[in-house]
Amino acid sequence: MEFTISFLWISLILSFLYLVKRKLSPGAGKTGALPLPLPPGPTPLPIVGNILDVGAQPHRSLARLARVYGPVMSVRLGLSTTVVVSSPAAAREVLQKKDQALSGRWVPDSMRALGHHETSTVWLPSGDPLRKHLRAVIATNIFSTLSLGATRAVLERQARELVANLRRCTGQPVR
């Protein structure tokens, strides 16, 4: 019992010190893909962020928060920072004028580990010249009529095997 109370007090003190440090240093804890400074928003709690502010009815909670913080606000959901746009005028500006800046995908660490994000058409931004070049190479060398014709026999054999397997499994679950 005494250990539990001590643990709770230590956790409370550490959380308080974290919040004080975050308030005193303006750029603390704001690293990542989003540009600084972030729009205003509710103060997040450590680890859970603003999940408790969003609650069970996020559309109503975010509308209530938008009345306080404005049509563009930042909300931390767990460890990810999200920018919420809640007015038609702000959404129009974001989606029409800032679309290239916001259209990039979040690249998982597993893709960054071996540098696959630098040479894959999936993870490169849509306006990147390398992505356009890679797509042209793929279209001319992999999906060209000549390349697809060369693999036609293999594709037909696989299709026949699939149909034969389905005929064998008629009336049974397909595995």
Rank of each mutant, 00 (worst) to 15 (best):
D109R: 14
R135V: 06
S144D: 00
A90F: 00
S61A: 15
M1W: 08
R22I: 08
I13N: 01
D128F: 03
P71G: 01
R67T: 08
S147R: 10
L62T: 05
L45H: 04
T119G: 05
S110N: 01
L166R: 12
K21V: 09
L65S: 02
P39L: 06
D109Y: 09
R22H: 07
S74F: 05
T4W: 07
P35Q: 03
W106A: 14
T151D: 07
M111T: 03
R105P: 04
P173M: 08
G27Q: 05
C169Y: 05
G104M: 12
L148C: 06
R60E: 15
L62H: 03
K98A: 11
S144Q: 01
T81I: 12
L17V: 12
A66E: 09
S110L: 13
P58W: 06
P35K: 03
I47A: 11
L124N: 06
R60L: 13
M73F: 03
V54D: 02
V174K: 08
A159L: 13
Q100H: 11
V75T: 10
G29R: 04
L162E: 06
P46Y: 06
E118G: 02
K98C: 09
T43K: 07
R64Q: 12
K132V: 00
L146T: 11
Q96E: 11
T31Q: 14
L114A: 09
P108G: 02
E2S: 13
I13L: 14
L17E: 05
A33F: 12
W9K: 09
Q96P: 00
M73H: 01
L36V: 13
